[in-house]
Computed example of a mutant assay.
Amino acid sequence: MTTLRQLTTKEHDLVHWMLEHGNPGAIAFLPQLEQALVAPWQCPCGCASFNLAVPGMPDPKGGMHILADFLFGAPNELSGIFVYEQTGVLSGLEVYGLAGEAPKTLPSIVSLRPFADAVRQA
Rank of each mutant, 00 (worst) to 15 (best):
M1G: 15
T2L: 13
T3E: 15
T3R: 12
L4S: 08
Q6F: 03
L7R: 08
K10A: 15
E11V: 08
E11T: 07
H12P: 03
H12D: 04
H12N: 09
H12G: 02
H12R: 14
D13M: 12
D13E: 15
L14Y: 12
V15S: 01
V15R: 01
V15N: 03
H16N: 14
W17M: 02
H21I: 06
G22P: 04
G22R: 02
G22L: 02
P24D: 07
P24Q: 03
A26Y: 00
I27G: 06
I27Q: 08
F29T: 01
F29A: 00
F29M: 04
P31G: 09
Q35L: 13
Q35I: 05
V38Q: 10
A39G: 06
P40G: 10
W41R: 10
W41A: 14
Q42L: 14
C43Q: 12
C45S: 14
C45K: 10
C45R: 10
C45W: 07
C47L: 11
A48S: 15
A48N: 10
A48T: 09
F50C: 09
F50A: 06
F50R: 05
F50D: 09
N51W: 13
N51M: 15
V54H: 06
P58L: 06
D59N: 09
D59K: 14
D59L: 11
K61C: 02
G63N: 14
A68I: 03
D69G: 01
F70V: 03
F70T: 01
F70Y: 11
L71I: 07
L71V: 08
L71M: 14
F72W: 14
F72M: 08
G73P: 08
A74P: 00
A74V: 06
S79W: 13
S79N: 15
S79F: 13
G80L: 04
G80K: 05
F82L: 06
F82P: 01
F82A: 00
F82T: 00
F82I: 00
Y84K: 01
E85L: 00
G88I: 03
G88V: 08
G88N: 04
G88C: 04
G92S: 04
G92N: 01
L93Q: 01
E94C: 13
E94D: 12
Y96Q: 07
A99R: 14
A99E: 12
K104Y: 01
K104V: 13
L106R: 04
P107S: 10
S108L: 12
S108R: 13
I109Y: 10
I109T: 14
I109K: 10
V110M: 05
S111Q: 13
P114A: 12
P114V: 06
F115L: 05
A122I: 00
